[in-house]
Structures are given as C-alpha cells and as structure tokens.
Design a protein around this nucleic acid. Structure first.
Length: 859
RNA sequence: GGAUGUUUAGCUCAGCUGGGAGAGCAUCGCCUUUACACGGCGGAGGUCAGAGGUUCGAGCCCUCUAACAUCCACCA
C-alpha cells in the first residue's frame, strides 16, 4: 500500500540504479523498429544547468514515450571536449596553481585537460542520473575519443582533397585573452561606450592644411596605408592623389578614391588599415596596398609601432593620444555608443587581425543543404519557422575559420616540411621526424561536434549501429545553437553520409529567470536543477519544464509552478492510493465488455478513451504542454473530482456491479500513470509497482491505446452531474451549509433511476423523488432535460425572482441562437453538424423558456 | 538596416489545421465529508495590444500601426 504522503525523496531513491542495472536503458532489440536520438553533448566545462535539464527532459519524454509505443529506442549520451571553453578553465586552474600551460608544455597540459574532463564527466553522469534520463550508458561517446579521431581525420582529409578546406590569409577575429582566432559566430556584439577621435592628417606639400580623419581605434593608425575618399565627393575632388602625414608615425600615405566610402558618414574621409579591418582589407587588395600587421595576437602592439611596441592595445591608445595631442594633431573627441565585438567565451574585445588560418569553403556545403530542404527528405523543424533561421543563414554564409590557436582539441593533421612550402595532410609524420613539423593549431570544437550523430554511431565504419540507427529520428535542442551545431551537422551529414542526420528537430527556447532575464554567471541568477530536484523532486522539475515550455518560446523559471507540479503529482499519488485502497488486494485485471459496465464506469472509460487519443496525438507532434493539459483536465475534472467521488457511492452500494468498478478503477489508474510516465517516471514507477498486477518495471509497459469502437451517450450522467452542480451553487446562493439536508424532486425524461444514490450523496438530499408532475409550490431550477424542485419554504416572491432570473438568462441564449439560425448564410455555409447542434440547442432553450413562463404564470 | 517572435484574467503563461475564452498562482465565500488542506465545493475577475480587411463566423487568416524581446548584418 502506498504511503499517505507523496514523498518524492523516498520514491526517487534507487530507481535509476535499478533501471540501469536491469538494462532497460539499453538499445538493441532488433525485433522492434528503431528510434534513435543523440544527446547534445554537454561541455566538460562544469556542471549542468537548467538549459541542459530542459534539453534532457524533452529528450527523455520522447525516449520513454517511444519505448512505450513499442520502439527499440536508442538515446545515446556523450560529452564534448569544448575546446576553447575547457581550455580557459584548465588555464585558470593552472594559474591558480602558479603555473601556466607554456611552462608545463603541451603534453602535460593535455594530461591536465583529460584529468579535468574525467572529473567533470563524473559530475555530469551523476546529474544525468538525477534527471532520470534513460540514456544508453554502454554507448557513451566523447568528441575526442578514438573513434572521433578517425572521423575527424577522414572529414578533414576528404574536404581538403576536394578543395573544400584551404589555408589562407584573411582577416580573422582574434580573442586576445585566449590568443586564438575565432569564427564569426563566436563573436558577440555588444553596445559599448566608446569614442570617436578626430585627427589631423596634414598634407605633405602644405602642412598647415590637413584632412580631418575620425577613428574609434587610434592604435590601428600604425597600420594605415592610405586615406580613402569617395570620388564623387565634391569636398575632396582636388586632393585625390595627394599625400598626407599619418600623425601616429609621421609616415607619408596617399589619398585614394573609392566608392566604398560613405560620403555622409563621419568626415567622408577614411583611414585604411588593411591588416586590421575586414573592409579595409578588401580595399587593400583591390589597390595592392601593403598590409602591415601592427599587433600581436595577445593584443599588444608589435615592432611596427616604434616606441609603443609591446604596450597593450588600450594602453597604447592612451599614450598615442597624449602624444598626438602634444603635436596639436588631435581635433576633438566625441563620445559614442557603438557595437563592439566580444569573444563569446572570454568576453574580451576581439581584434581583427590578418593572419594565416584554415577555412572550410562553405558555399557548396551550404547549397546542398538548401537544395535538400526543398526535397521530400528535408529535416523537419518543430516549430517550422526555425527552418528559415537555418536557410537564411546558410544562404549568406562566410567561409568557416576552423583553426584555433589552442592545445585542447583535434590537432590539425597537416605537416609542413621545414624550409619549404610543402605540406601534407596526414595523421602521422609523413617523413623523417626532424624534417616535418605538424601544424600547431587544433580544430574548432564544432568541427567535431558537427559529426556527432553519425560519428557516435561508428562512422566512418559501417557498423551495425550506424546501419540500424542512422539517420537518427529526432534531435532536441535550443534555438541558440542552430548555427553553431544544427546547421553544421546537417551539411556535414549530407556531404559525408548522403543523408540527413536526423528527421525531426525539436527546438525549445531558453529558460530565463523569474524576472525574464537571461541566466548568466555575472548576474548570478542561474537556477541549479539539482537544487530544484532536492527541494521538489525530479518529477516535479520535469513536469514543470515540459508544461511551461511552449514550442520554440523562452520560458521563465517559476518556483510556484514547480510547486504546482508537485501538488499535481501529489494529487495523482492520492488518487492512486484511493483506487488501490478500494481495489481487492489480489485484483486480477481482465478485459470487460464495455456494454456490461455500470453507467458511470462507462462514462469515465469513454472519457479516458478520448483522452488517450488526444494525448497521443499531441505527443506525436512533440506538443508536450498540450498533452499535459489534456491529461491534467482528465485527471482533475473527470477522474478525481467526479469519478472517484462517485466510486464512494458505487463501492458501498450493492445494487452496482463492483466488478465493473474495479475494472474501471484499475484501467483508468493504469492509463493515467502510463500517460504521465514520460513526464514523471519516478512516481509512475512507484504507483505502477503497487498495482496488484504488474511487470518488473513500468518501463516494460506499453502505452495505452484508444479504442475506436467505444461510443457512449453521456447525457444521463451529465444530467446527474448538472443536478449536483446546480444544487451546490443553489446552496451557496442561499447561504445554506453544504451539508444542509434538503428535499428534492426531479422531473426529467432522462433515465437516471440507477443514478439517484449519487445525487443523494453529493447534495445531501433526502427523499429524492422522480416525478412527472409540475409543482408550482416548490422552488424550481430549470436545467437541460429536466426540472429540479426544491422544498425550501421560501416565499412566493423569492421563488418568482429566481424564476425570472432564469428566464432572463434563457432569453439571452435564445436571442443569440436566433440570430445565428436566422442568418441564411450561416445555414448555407457552416458545417452541417454545427447547424444541427445549434438547432438542437435552440429547441432546448425554447422548451426551458416555455416551462419557466408556465411556472411564472402559475405562481 | 534586415528578419523573427511576443502583446490573452491581478501575476506568469497555455490555447494544436477559425465554430460560444483556459491553467497555475493570487483573490473572495463555505467546508477538517476517512485518497489528498500539496485538499474539496462555489464565486469574482478578459471589448484576447490598436485599426482595417477576408469569412456565415476571427484570440487564431491577411494588411497596417505601436510597444517590447531576440537573431542576423553593420560605416571607418
């Protein structure tokens, strides 16, 4: 028997261990159809946050649902080495220990990093267990494991041979703190306060005159190679071709003309720094200008900056300003707010610097995705609109900078021959060790993540898993990594497996704090899922996440809602207790013919049947919020508030068929817990195992089916329900205690003789009589299909008032109905059922009206 | 500058292909009736942002407007 209290701590204890040991999480039953999913591998940077919780909850709901639906479900776990993020953490740890990676060397650094990975993986494992997700631990992968080494090499080599990977000099964004190049999407633009500095660039032939040039980054002036004006700019027509002096280093540079310059912006004259600005770089190439690099990758000035060399870029800026001011070449400083690129990871202001990096040529790969999205075999997005996010980005994409000046990651498999231009793609040294040197850099972490859905299944080997589970069925992730990850998986998968990586992508939003702010470390407003679990239980957290998240929309964390989830589960718990208390201990479930059931049993079975159908439909569309809503309404309104209360009568009254009620209780309860199970597996398992008849685990059960052959006329039961509700509100209206005894007569053509004991119990009525005669002496409540007479000794006047009130309401309804039915277009164009329904209502209103008028007359 | 999303009860939000507005919390009244006070019963509270349009019928479809949010691209 279940405890009185829903004690989630007690219930959730030990279940995952049991599930894991029993092998229920393991995929591989080839007698079933496969359904596969990969976990978005969390970074081994730290603990999981609420964002992971929502990901994993959605996935686990799908996994458990599909398993119950009869699929061989593979839910494959793993972790991501997360190059730059993890390296930053390990760097910080080394710094704390008073050393750094350069002191200990590459090999030792990697040892440290792997140690770090092991530690963090352990934490992640324990958190997965807390979440109760049914991942197949036997298939866990890591983006740096041996299989991945094979996959990454194969991809790099192939793309290189196809000319889709190249090495080139480009302006790339540098993170001066991490000292590595970044890809475009690793830059976060923020609105920062800055300055616009106006300088005098004096003419060589006439030093009293000057051009006014503005810049936000004076330190880059050391890299200026010319001034550019628009050829159509009347102000500057005469100075094109003249020479001016760069006030930073007194170098003489020419004024050239190019239409790129916006006449309206700033002074209309722009300094050009080809090695430190992407647009300037293009101009530089066009006019074959020199492109001096004036900064080091750590953000310090280099030897091209004279006395400013080795200064930090911002220190240099101030020093340079001071000097220029002294030479009277500073005109003014304006305060501005502008968008400044920051490194996504370190938050440092990124610095565009010309350098040699490896790139993936994106256009052919992107085009293939765009082409495929027009075909039958496209990746389906839920909600659909996120497909546009993907395609728009891919339609206008830059090449992908994949080299990172880091140590933690897949090292670029390219070897350079000393003192020559020769390079070879190879995993191992292609010749004598002292003649060849491997590229120092590693690949962008997303380069390996992009292979996740197929590399985890064994690719490039044609393994059984790969053959059986690829393409995967579904991917669940947040919209924030569509570019980083989803898109890259799709193009790599199409290119290398000729197939999409997953059929469906389910996109959810971000979890924000209770004030709607993004959770961030600096705000300290993050919600720790483990803390929530400790306080309210995994099931409550899961239910909260599943029901609060509308597809693709952000949600706010709300402790109240977690509490509400907990209260709901408590309700289910107690309804189960009630059912189990009333079922015989040795109850054996046997199917029963629907026709042989008691009336209220038929009612609830029929409602249950509808609920199963609706819930299943919602589940198939990944509409978890809707599924839960439907189930919630069934559990409360139909099952608990109505049916279980009715059972209290049924089970104590020998005139009812108890077998029917046992059957109905058992079947309803079992169906409810099976439907709530994907959302709240722990409580469901606990209740399931308390059933008098059960398997070893709810994980072995099948999802309930809705039966198509059940049809039931609810009207008798609804009439009874209506009577009970009307009497209850009558009592409140008349300040009667709920348990006040009253005497009722009911006139109806409904067949409710078998249901009278229910009315008695719930209205505290004695002497309920079914009558066929009109009673004008009693208070009358005219309801659908009948009249309730209450013997309450109130005055004639009051009786009349009550009747008039009822009449007023009916007249309103009749007016509404008539308006509709007199509208010929409605009759002609609306669906037939709709019209019939309205006509039927109209008839009932008319009947009620007649009765009421008759009564008023007779009083 | 381009795109997308949001605007529904006091608060936080659902509302799936158009057919008489829902939940949770809060609130008011009554009830400790042996499943549940993490409860029950009853109630109050919404011209569904605004303006047009399509339709017999619009919270839902179309157009425009406003506010807010997010993403992308950014002029030195």
């Amino acid at each position: 028997m279940l405890d009185k209290r829903y004690d989630f701590k007690e219930i959730e204890k030990g279940k995952v261990k049991k599930w894991k040991e029993s092998g229920y999480f393991k995929a591989g039953d080839t007698s079933k159809l496969p359904f596969s999913m990969v976990i978005p591998p969390p970074n081994v940077t730290g603990v999981l946050h609420i964002g992971h919780a929502i990901d994993n909850t959605f996935q686990d709901i799908i996994a458990r649902y599909k398993k119950a639906k009869g699929f061989d479900v593979l839910y494959l776990p793993g972790v991501d080495h997360a190059g730059i993020a993890t390296q930053a953490k390990v760097d910080a740890k080394l710094k704390e220990e008073g050393t750094d990676r350069f002191k200990i060397g590459r090999e030792n650094f990697l040892k440290e990093a792997f140690k770090w990975k092991e530690e963090k993986s352990d934490i992640i494992h324990s958190q997965w267990e807390k979440m109760g997700i049914m991942i197949d631990y036997s298939r866990e992968r890591f983006t740096l494991d041996e299989g991945f080494q094979d996959a990454v090499y194969k991809v790099f080599k192939t793309l290189y041979d196809e000319g889709l990977i190249y090495r080139g000099e480009r302006i790339v964004n540098y993170d001066p703190e991490m000292k590595t190049a970044l890809s475009n999407i690793e830059i976060v633009y923020k609105e920062d306060k800055g300055h616009f500095y106006y300088f005098k660039y004096r003419f060589v032939d006439e030093p009293t005159k000057y051009l006014e040039i503005a810049t936000t980054r004076p330190e880059t002036m050391f890299g200026d190679t010319c001034i550019v004006v628009n050829p159509n700019d009347e102000r500057y027509k005469d100075i094109i071709g003249k020479k001016v002096i760069n006030p930073a280093n007194n170098e003489v540079i020419p004024v050239i003309a190019d239409e790129y310059v916006d006449i309206e912006f700033g002074t209309g004259a722009m300094k050009c720094t080809p090695a430190h600005d992407p647009n300037d770089f293009i101009i530089g190439q066009k006019y074959n200008l020199p492109h001096p690099i004036i900064m080091n990758v750590d953000g310090t000035m280099n030897e091209n900056c004279g006395k400013y060399a080795s200064m930090d870029r911002f220190v240099c800026r101030e020093a340079l300003l001071k000097d220029i001011k002294e030479h009277d070449d500073l005109i003014k400083i304006e305060e501005i707010t502008h968008q400044v690129g920051h490194s996504e990871r370190s938050d440092a202001v990124v610095e565009p610097i010309l350098s040699k990096q490896w790139f993936v040529k994106m256009k052919p790969l992107a085009d293939r995705v765009l082409e495929n999205q027009k075909s039958e075999n496209k990746v389906k997005f839920y909600p659909e609109r996120f497909e546009n996010v993907l395609t728009r980005w891919l339609s206008n994409i830059d090449d992908w900078c994949i080299s990172r000046q880091l140590w933690w990651g897949h090292r670029i498999p390219v070897w350079y021959k000393n003192g020559s231009e020769e390079m070879v793609v190879s995993r191992t040294c292609p010749g004598k060790e002292d003649e060849w040197k491997q590229d120092e850099d590693v690949l962008d972490t997303w380069f390996s993540s992009a292979l996740w859905p197929f590399a985890t299944l064994g690719w490039p080997k044609e393994t059984d898993d790969f053959k059986r589970y690829f393409p995967t069925s579904c991917l669940v992730t947040g919209y924030d990594i569509i570019f980083f990850w989803v898109s890259r998986m799709i193009f790599q998968s199409l290119h290398f497996t000729n197939n999409i990586p997953f059929k469906d992508v389910v996109i959810h939003g971000l979890v924000r704090d209770s004030l709607g702010r993004k959770m961030s470390k600096s705000l300290g407003n993050g919600v720790d899922p483990v803390a929530v679990i400790d306080k309210y239980g995994t099931d409550s957290l899961r239910y909260f996440l599943a029901t609060t998240a509308a597809p693709g929309l952000d949600m706010r964390y709300s402790e109240e809602k977690v509490q509400a989830a907990n209260a709901y589960l408590n309700k289910i718990w107690n309804s189960a207790r009630f059912a189990l208390m009333n079922l015989p201990n040795d109850y054996k479930f046997e199917e029963m013919d629907f026709a042989s059931l008691n009336e209220v049993d038929k009612f609830i079975i029929s409602r249950l049947n509808e609920t199963i159908l609706k819930v299943t439909n919602a589940m198939e569309k990944y509409e978890f919020g809707i599924a839960c809503q439907i189930l919630h309404s069934f559990v409360y309104d139909d099952f608990c508030d109505f049916y279980l209360e009715m059972c209290k009568v049924t089970l104590q009254n020998d005139s009812f068929n108890k077998k029917s009620t046992y059957y109905t209780l058992f079947k309803s309860l079992k169906s409810i817990i099976l439907m709530i199970y994907p959302f709240a597996p722990f409580i469901s398992e606990e209740i399931y195992l308390s059933l008098s008849e059960h398997k070893d685990s709810i994980m072995l059960e099948s999802y309930p089916n809705s039966e198509s052959n059940i049809s039931f006329d609810e009207s008798n039961v609804l009439f009874v329900k209506n009577v009970i509700e009307k009497i209850r509100s009558y009592k409140v209206d008349n300040s009667l205690a709920p348990n006040q005894k009253i005497s009722l007569k009911i006139k109806t053509n409904k067949n409710i003789s078998s249901l009278i004991s229910y009315i008695e119990r719930f209205t505290f009525a004695s002497n309920i009589e079914l009558t066929s005669e009109e009673r004008h002496d009693l208070t009358s409540l005219v309801i659908n299909d009948g009249i309730i007479y209450i013997d309450d000794n109130i005055s004639k006047e009051e009786k009349l008032n009550k009747l008039n009130l009822q009449l007023e309401n009916i007249n309103k309804e009749i007016k509404r109905s008539e308006a509709l039915l007199n509208n010929e277009k409605f009759l002609a164009k609306a669906k037939k059922e709709k019209v019939d329904e309205e006509k039927e209502k109209y008839q009932k209103y008319k009947e009620k009206k007649e009765i009421l008028e008759e009564k008023i007359k007779n009083i």
